[in-house]
Design a protein around this nucleic acid. Structure first.
Lengths: 228, 228
DNA sequence: AGACTGAATATTGTCAACAATCTGCAATTC
DNA sequence: GAATTGCAGATTGTTGACAATATTCAGTCT
């Protein structure tokens, strides 16, 4: 999917139905924060924006509801979900378990090319760090984790992991940016990839789990700092 | 949810919208095998059956698609998903990781009452075993795992786990009944609950993971037996 | 006979209108 | 003045109709 040669819009429309397109579009709107957490989502407005009727919009919203990005109240409409610290905590608990699994599987299965790609991504992050380009670092970080879960070679795991990650992203957008320490983060990445390259699956799993735990800890720190 | 005092239909209709009701209904149809794996799902037919128009049906199907019970092809309609052995394997890989987490958390958090409930469920399963009532055992087994994931006290985990379980159920319905050995299964349950009662979270996690692994192994055995 | 063409049918995709419900605000009552 | 009621206006819930596409099957040609 990352390397898909750009399909023409024609192909897109022919394969994906309108609801699917709208689904992806609205998801981006939410993930980019254009539709803020807690905000009411107006069907007609979206229909107008995308040049469709409300039918496809509603179908897309139902899918987004199932994936947890949106919540719906009867006769009141749908709202972008708000993730509480407690909920983020629950998600992190799952994510840690999955990260351990991911680390193990990648160490077992990653091809030399994939390991090279991971190292390249880390180098880029180092670059972003020295340039203090936080935004770029953040994007690269997401890409790194996207790559690594892909390399675990379990499509269903990828799907599950991305679902949870999206929800956490929703939480971060709520205002709490990952509390600094992004130079630290990359040294963790290096350790993980080193274990992967050494094919030490147990260690890789352990390290990737710890990496998620660190991220959770940073969230907590940011959250409590904000509440005082 | 298990202890919800039966709400009146009035309340149900007032709170849940038609798509939500239809969603639950169709899910049952699929999980009970009334809509078989791979089968084409006719929108108009369902609309007629539930006495609605096609709109709500389509919304429900979109949600079911997102949850993975159904797949959809443009202009051809939606089909009940078919889970291959490879996909089931992927799901089991995730399930094992989650079961380990579940075991740990339950050992840490379960109340004495909850532990008693688990023991009661096991006793019932023993009874079903001695009566050779496989069907009842199967139902109780599902209930047991439902309870245990609930007792982990992580709503998001419950949701994720149930999602995967539903997909696996879809696979089992495909013909491969869990290859016997259900007396074995209950001795495993006992060991898990013993570890939980002893508050040994590491062991409980390990045992529950193993339990999932055994289940996976039984699936493999049944699958290869079928393919020869 | 087998492969191809094309109409007839069935099914899905989309839309626009109508019904039900909620929200906000002004008028009314105590 | 505060609480309540009742009335627009807006928004969602649902529907039935129409358009676009796929499938089927009879007929035709080689």
């Amino acid at each position: 999917m990352p390397l898909a040669s750009t399909p023409t819009t024609l192909q897109l429309v022919q394969t994906n139905s309108l609801p699917a397109l709208v689904h992806a579009e609205i998801e981006q709107l939410i993930l980019r924060g254009e539709l803020a957490s807690g905000q009411h989502v107006n069907e007609s407005e979206l229909a107008l924006r995308f040049g469709t009727s409300r039918g496809p919009i509603r179908e897309a919203l139902r899918a987004l509801e199932e994936s947890g990005l949106v919540r719906s109240e009867k006769h009141r409409g749908v709202f972008v979900r708000e993730i509480s610290v407690a909920e983020a905590d629950e998600i992190y608990d799952i994510r840690e378990a999955l990260d351990q699994l991911i680390g193990q599987r990648v160490a077992e299965r990653a091809t030399p090319e994939q390991i090279r790609d991971l190292k390249a991504a880390i180098a880029e992050m180092d670059e972003a760090t020295s340039l203090k380009d936080i935004k770029r670092y953040h994007a690269l970080n997401l890409k790194f984790h996207d790559m690594i879960v892909d390399f675990a070679g379990n499509a269903r795991l990828t799907e599950t992991y991305r679902l949870l990650t999206k929800e956490l992203l929703l939480f971060r957008l709520r205002g709490l940016q990952d509390g600094g320490g992004f130079a630290v983060s990359n040294t963790e990445h290096k350790a993980v990839v080193k274990a992967i390259a050494a094919r030490d699956s147990v260690l890789a799993g352990e390290l990737l789990r710890q990496h998620a735990a660190e991220s959770r800890a940073r969230m907590h720190k940011a959250a409590t700092r904000r509440d005082e």
